[in-house]
Amino acid sequence: MGDWTGALNLEVEDRKGKTVAKKVYFQGAFKVMRPIYHDESGQACYYLLNPGGGYLDGDRYQMKISLAEKAKLTLTTQSATKVYKTPNNFAYQEAEISLQPGSYLEYLPDPLIAYQNAKYKQKNVIRMDKTATFLYSDIVTPGWSPDGERFSYQTVQLLNEIYVDNELVVYDHIRLNPATQNMKGLGFMEGFSHLGSMIVVGKQTNSSLLDQLYSAIDMNSDDYKLGLSLLAVPGLIIRVLAHSTQVIEKLFSELHRMVSQEWFNTEPSFLRKY
């Protein structure tokens, strides 16, 4: 299993209120740019890059991210993850994330675009201390095909496993399989094309935060369908079905802003990409 198309290992730590890299290692078609500090908070922001421009047949990517005590990190991508057709073997990406006490990670990758006949699997395993905080989002687009047909990929499978103090607390497993499922049918995409998920785990979460988020969102909009729920540990999950990436991004940035405001009394930084 050690045969990676691209591998990345990033360890960060807090040095006098500023989060800095302790170890940065990457090889193959995976790298990170130098960190950017968007404000005075000391929180580092790393952009992930896929120099190959997209994932190909049988590609395998591995990421190991580790935050030492009190480190604060934003991890994002420079652009959408593209998975091209995979005639033989699915493309795969896994992330192992370790969050030490008091650390904070925002992992906010750009949308996933699976091309015609693509098969993709992604697995994120997060191991965190109960005093750490984790905020994650992802967006799955209906993909791309030369004739503009939506859902022409074969399968997209996303798994998030979150452990708090070594106990499994979240097992989020979604598979979209347009090759065998009727994406237009009841129970699948409900007439929408884009799927967004956001997970927040942090001891500060309570039902009043949930109420606050609910009251800030128009639950009767025709532009999207949104569900929110508390997890088995302090934290919440949000799922959105919408017609575009922009609608989901707008909702997530608003929710992210409210969570940051409530928990840390801070505003999230705008992630400049272009």
Binding site: Y171, D172, H173, I174, R175, L176, Q181, L186, G187, F188, M189, E190, L195, Y214, M219, K225, L226, G227, L228, S229, I237, R239, L241
Partner: peptide, 18 residues
Amino acid sequence: DFGLVSPGLELSQMMHER
């Protein structure tokens, strides 16, 4: 394959809360 779910079903279960 454990725990797979289609998005619409799960969303309907979350939306039921409200």
